[in-house]
Design a binder for these strands. Sequence first.
DNA 1: CCAAAATGTCTAG
DNA 2: TAGACCTTTTGGC
Length: 291
Amino acid sequence: MPEGHSVHRLAQQFSDVFVGSAVRASSPQGRFAQGAELLDGMVMSRARAHGKQLFLDFSDGAATCSGVATRVLRVHLGLYGALDFGGDQTFAGASSIGAPRRIGEAEGSQIVGTEYVGPPEPVGAVRVRLVTDHGWGDLRGPTACEVLTVPEAELVIGKLGPDPLINQQGDRERFVQLLTRSKKSVGQQLMEQNILAGVGNIYRAELLFRQRLNPATLGSSVPSGAAASLWEDAVGAMNDGVRRGKIVTTGDPEVPHFVYQRNSQPCMRCGELVALRELAGRKLYWCPGCQ
DNA sequence: CCAAAATGTCTAG
DNA sequence: TAGACCTTTTGGC
């Protein structure tokens, strides 16, 4: 159950140990058999994330001169999708984010073995299995998993809001514009991927708390300076999440969140009890005392 | 063992 | 806004 930081870690993992290699693609579960067939044998040429979506580019390694036949595998893990990795020492050692690990609910759990003898028998419903000479990745439970053309992928990305983990030139101003032009509450808008890509329920709650913003505040009532601070805080907090492989907004891994899932407990800043209500079908946590 | 929950998004009404 | 969907893990009997 990933927010943007998990997906950016995945993109990094693929960049480190898949990009440049020919990939065998299959669908042990069967539901992605057609898509896997399209990709099987191609070379992964690029891996990137935008918000919560992962884009893996595949090129026909043999036909580079006559225009590269490129396909893009778009993956959205949704609420409970996950990827497992495993492989040999080269595979594990090349990763800049440490040993291959499961990215998902149990972020950080180890699965790498000492000797690599090829991928194990698929366990459970593996939608896609990607295998190189040095390792493998198993995808299960994604909300979205489809093969696109490059223009189709660009179209998807074009509809997304700015991603704090990309933080391109002009992104902060774009976010400020989008947020403050709307009368929807800031709490609601932070979950909208066309406003801010990559933020989910945890970062929403924690960022609003850190910025002392009440979730009910209208976007149009948020001063542009406060909106800019919110963006900068998202950049910092989410990059920290990428580094750690988990969300720790308090700085203390023992008590990782200020308000998320801390309803009815005293606020760590002012002592008031943390509140919980449902907003647009999702649980919203905040401190009525100091936000 | 079975139900519920989980860091999400879509669609119909 | 309710329901559907994708799958695993956890907690209660």
